[in-house]
Each structure stands twice: as structure tokens, then as C-alpha cells.
Design a protein around this nucleic acid. Structure first.
Lengths: 219, 219
DNA sequence: TGCCTTTTGTGAAGGAATTCACATATTCGG
DNA sequence: CCGAATATGTGAATTCCTTCACAAAAGGCA
């Protein structure tokens, strides 16, 4: 699943770790750190310094030998790589438990993911104001997505209807989908689909407790 | 990070895939399938048949050559492995956006994760009924966790206070924590901590859109 | 019964990700 | 300005994970 970028293969785990570095760098920036070493970064994320350096090296030489990495500068570079230096238009489909939590989740906006539209099929919800956003009728999904130039759609509907929604979304030309429904969705080859499985980490904890794995932090 | 079990090392990814198999098997069971091949299982999860067989082989020989795996039986075996054949007492700390979504998330109960207690520090919320559960005062966290024999605690408080909460929780003897706060928590060596990062997959989509990775499903 | 088909279970091979180890570059103190 | 200390960047080594490939087992059918 690794991709070419320049000439090297970048693994999915490297991208995920970039997200983690970005978060740490935001904190360090607030704490007025000027520079940070791979050692320090590694310590905060329970990784090895070599891992941090290798991850970053895929994208260039951002550090200074003997000193470390400039915090603000590195943060900007990672933002650029991950596309967090721009604004994304996001829509959420389904204003149930999960959907409404996501609409109110401040972290998204902070990273440039702006929830522009929210959809539901429940007549009682449609038209109501949900955390500053009017709930749209799912009947107009395709049209609304197009007209509002939505980049990413988050699926937060019951598993039973998720595929129908996805089919609609794809017809609207959407190329990136984040799925919270506990089901495997089918999408064409040119659409990016990621699944968010809320149970999986709880199940891991359950397994760990039973089998007494060697504990510790892990993402 | 892999653990001994019997004599073989089980990787984290194998455990995560067991969760996926479990979900598929539940669906197949409802659809009255008697048996399923590694090929079919693989197809549904976008994996290879060899991967499926190897994953399962770590825990025993569950299949029949020429036939495949017995759906109900395999589901039970995986449930046993993951600890989904028993009930877990879970507490949620923080009844904000995320916290209240989790309390209402039916999928957890279905898998044996019973949310028994919910905590907040907001006087207006304490004592109120939240989806059938009375919100407890976080001041009594340690005592309540002990008295209710809580196994797993879910952290859904702001990042700024998460560490204090965790310290309390650990004092209460809790050994498994699922953290939704966007911060790295410190826990003793004998406590299992997993982080749920709601932004990470959105960031991956952002990266993918910018870099035109080869698309497709991935968990 | 015996043969053909299917599919598992698993060592061995191959590939991918992580860590090692060190040459190289830079800062800092005196 | 020099030497000691620090920390990057990266090929090579290692470890870990996935896939291959095939022997072994079971079912189905003539």
C-alpha cells in the first residue's frame, strides 16, 4: 500500500506517525521550545530516535546536526505534507450519537477540517440547528455535496444503510470517505476509504487483560 | 510488542484482524452461513487467504480441509480469545461530545462492554440521567471505580486534565485505559493504555488527496 | 471404493519496517 | 579558534510480518 513520493516508498505507519509528531510539535510550540531532538520526540511518543529521524528523512532534511529540529519550522513542514496547511470542506452524514459528537469536535476545525454540511433522514432533525449547522435532508445529498464543494465525507449512519449512502456520495464525485459504520463498504478504485472502528481498541484491551500481554502505551 | 501465547508470538495486527474476522463472522452467522473459507473471509476484509489462515493458526486449527471454517464455532473461539465471551464493566469519564456519544454507542454493549458508570465534574450534569445512567461526581472517582468493580476506563475529558484523571484511576487499581484525549498519558508499566485518535484517519485522507496515493480500502 | 476437487495448516521465502551504527555536521565553552 | 559534546541523516543489519507453495486432510461423486 506504500506510495511513491519523490523516489522513496512512504509507509502508512510513517504517515500516521507524522500526525503524532505534528501534535507534539504543536504542544512544544505553545511551550515555547525553539528546537527539539529526535530523542525528545521519540521519548514523548514511545518510539526510537532512529525511527523519528528516518520518518522525517523521507521528506527532506529538516534538522541541524548538534541542535535538533526547529519546532515551528518542522511543524509547518509536516502540516504541508499532511495537507493541514489548507482548509478542507467536510460533510457528516448521520446525526446520531457519533455524528453529533463529530460535529461538535473542536479538534477537527483546529486542523483545517471544516464541517460544512450535516445530513440526516429524520424529519424531526432536518432543518434544526445542530451546533451551529442546519441539518440537511439526505434526499438532497448528491446535489448539496456538489454545490458546497465538499472534499471529504464522514459516514455516521447505521451499518444497514451505509452502502446506499456511499453509492450516492460517489455519484456526487467525492473521493475521500471516512467510515464509522461497522461494515465494509465497497468503493471504486479511485476513492480513498478509511474505516474508524470504535470497538477495536476496546477489544484489544480486553484481549490484553485476559492474556496479560506486556503492557505499556501503544497507539 | 508481541506477546508469548503458548509458544508463538502474536502481533498486534493479528489481534486487530481477529476483531475484523469476528465482525464478519457475526454477519455470516446472521446470514445463516454454515462454513466460510479463508478465501471468502479474505475477500471481505481485503486481505489474502494466507493471512487469514496464518492469523487463525496461531490459536489452533479451527478449520476443516476442503470445507473451510465453521462460522458459529469460529466466532465463539475468537470471542473467547478476545474476551468477548464475558462481560466487562466499563466507566466513561467526561460527558462532553465524545463521552456522551460513547455512552449511547450500542456496539459496545453488544460486545460485552457494559458502561456501568459515567463521570463529570460539571455540577449541572452530575446527578442527571444520561441515556439511562446517572452521571457521577468525578470527586468520587476512585471510590466509585473500586466499588463497582470497573475493569476498563474510557477517558473523554479535555487534554488539559486527562493526566490528573488517569492518576486517580490508577490509584483505584484500574489496569486498562482507553484514551480519547489528544495527549500522551503516563501510566505505570502494569497498566494497558490505548489511544484513540479521532483525527488520524482524517489526516491520512488529507495526505492521500494531496499526494494521490493509490486508493482503496484500508483500516 | 477410489479419484478428483477443495481448502487447510505451515515451513520456507520474500518483503517491509525498524533499529543499529557511524560518518558528518554543527554548536558551545573556554 | 579548537576540542568536546551533541545530534542528524542514512546505508547496512536485523527483526518482524506477509505471502508463497505444497503436503495433508476431508468431502463429493461416480
Amino acid at each position: 500500500m506504500a506510495t511513491e513520493l519523490g523516489r522513496k516508498k512512504i509507509s502508512e505507519s510513517t504517515i500516521h506517525r507524522l500526525s503524532l509528531y505534528y501534535r507534539i510539535l504543536s504542544i512544544l510550540e505553545k511551550e515555547n521550545y525553539e528546537t527539539v531532538s529526535s530523542k525528545e520526540l521519540a521519548k514523548r511518543e514511545k518510539l526510537t530516535p532512529a525511527q523519528v529521524r528516518k520518518d522525517l528523512s523521507f521528506f527532506g532534511s529538516f534538522g541541524t546536526r548538534g541542535l535538533g529540529y526547529p519546532v515551528s519550522e518542522l511543524k509547518k513542514r509536516i502540516a504541508k505534507i499532511l495537507g493541514l496547511d489548507r482548509q478542507w470542506n467536510v460533510a457528516v452524514v448521520g446525526v446520531g450519537n457519533i455524528g453529533s459528537a463529530l460535529v461538535g469536535y473542536k479538534e477537527f476545525q483546529r486542523q483545517g477540517f471544516n464541517i460544512k454540511l450535516v445530513f440526516d433522514n429524520d424529519q424531526r432533525k432536518i432543518g434544526s440547528n445542530h451546533k451551529g449547522i442546519i441539518v440537511c435532508d439526505i434526499a438532497n445529498l448528491e446535489k448539496d455535496l456538489r454545490e458546497n464543494k465538499i472534499d471529504i465525507v464522514i459516514i455516521a449512519v447505521p451499518a444497514t444503510v451505509a452502502q446506499y449512502i456511499v453509492d450516492d456520495i460517489i455519484r456526487a464525485g467525492i473521493k475521500a470517505i471516512l467510515n464509522f459504520a461497522p461494515i465494509n463498504l465497497k468503493v471504486p478504485g479511485d476513492v480513498y476509504l478509511r474505516n474508524e472502528n470504535m470497538s477495536i481498541e476496546l477489544e484489544y484491551l480486553s484481549f490484553a487483560l485476559i492474556n496479560q500481554r506486556n503492557p505499556g502505551t501503544k497507539d
